[in-house]
């Protein structure tokens, strides 16, 4: 098992090095090109930011997916399928629209991060309540409620795009497609890394509780798990991590679903290894998508990273759903 974990670490390093070697660069005549080119003093900071940004977004989304799956004992849970990512987008769009129409500064409204946290929490609570009312947190009901609510939230965000000034609208649209900023606010990047590493430590320390949470509620409680406080903690961690990732990079879909399941495939189901492996798989997914987009130009520039993760993650989700409907063990991929 340890060599598999080492393989994941090696893959992360390899992808990071590859991403540093690929990206926009200028030729002797000053024309912009995309593709493989060794980093120069001018391009290295941008590429290093992209690596750091993609890695932290993957880390946050992967761990958010794992926390939400443990919270709901449901393999279909993820920030994207539960509408959390769309809710966070809606929250950010709300902040920007209110700021644009009232003249209040975005900081006074809690900033993009505050809006994302509010929207993510709102979505999570609504999905939970809707699914519980329907069938008592049944897996498919949860996923359906999340997809429907996610659609509504996305539509709400698109509606709000019409309110913001024309100059801001393009930025908002690009942000909603999901992108890894190559020139991020350094303090935001550092804050996200601190949050991601703290969440990794907390979840790793709670690995035995997450294992026991997979049991029947009564068995878990009798084995010493404080169900209410543990679930509240997972709810906060899942929502906060997803909101942080969305506020930084926009709604990048399916990472929170693909990363935990890929990690289970490599490492197994015990959370002591699954937690760090999920973080690594999240990093691998987003770094791979960001690397891939460097070579994919459909005539309008590089594709947004969220488009690539959605194109790859959508079929993965459908495959998972079909396994679940057939009554197989959807946790064991």
């Amino acid at each position: 098992m340890k060599w598999r974990f080492a393989l994941l670490v090696a893959l992360v390093l390899l992808l990071a090095l590859a991403r540093l070697s690929v990206g926009p660069h200028l030729d002797g005549a000053g024309a912009m090109h995309f593709g493989v080119a060794m980093p120069t003093a001018e391009t290295l900071p941008f590429r290093a930011n992209a690596v750091a940004g993609a890695a932290v977004v993957g880390l946050l989304l992967g761990l958010a997916g794992l926390a939400l799956q443990a919270l709901l004992r449901n393999p279909l849970a993820s920030p994207y399928t539960l509408g959390v990512s769309s809710g966070a987008s809606f929250g950010v769009a709300c902040v920007l629209a209110i700021a644009a129409t009232t003249g209040i500064s975005t900081q006074a409204l809690g900033g993009e991060f505050g809006g994302a946290v509010f929207g993510a929490a709102l979505s999570l609570v609504l999905v939970w309540m809707l699914a519980k009312r329907a069938t008592g947190r049944d897996g498919v009901a949860l996923a359906l409620a999340g997809i429907v609510l996610g659609g509504v939230m996305s539509s709400g965000a698109m509606l709000l795009e019409q309110i913001v000034p024309r100059g801001l609208r393009g930025d908002l649209l690009a942000w909603m497609a999901g992108r890894i900023p190559e020139l991020p606010d350094p303090s935001a990047l550092v804050a996200l890394w601190i949050l991601g590493v703290l969440a990794l430590i907390v979840l790793w320390k709670a690995a035995h509780l997450l294992d026991l949470l997979m049991l029947d509620d009564d068995e878990a409680a009798a084995a010493g798990v404080r169900l209410a406080s543990t679930r509240a903690g997972l709810f906060i961690i899942g929502g906060l991590l997803a909101a942080a990732a969305v506020s930084f990079a926009g709604p990048i879909g399916f990472v929170g679903l693909v990363a935990p399941h890929t990690a289970r495939l490599f490492i197994g189901h015990r959370h002591r290894l699954l937690v760090p492996s999920t973080a690594l798989c999240g990093v691998i997914v987003v770094l791979s998508a960001d690397l891939l987009r460097q070579g994919l130009d459909v005539g309008t520039g590089r594709l947004p990273v969220g488009v690539i993760t959605a194109l790859a993650g959508g079929p993965f989700f459908l495959w998972l759903l079909s396994r679940s409907r057939r009554g197989g063990s959807e946790w064991n991929l």
């Binding site: 035995h208 026991l212 997979m214 049991l215 029947d216 009798a222 010493g224 197994g268 189901h269 064991n332």
Partner: peptide, 26 residues
């Protein structure tokens, strides 16, 4: 939990642990 354990009638396990992994939980 080291002094009292409970097995409900219709227990379940959401994750697909191996037998040894499940018995060693906790």
């Amino acid at each position: 939990a080291l002094k009292r354990a409970f097995v409900p009638q219709r227990g379940s396990c959401a994750a697909d642990f191996s037998v040894e992994e499940l018995v060693s939980l906790g």
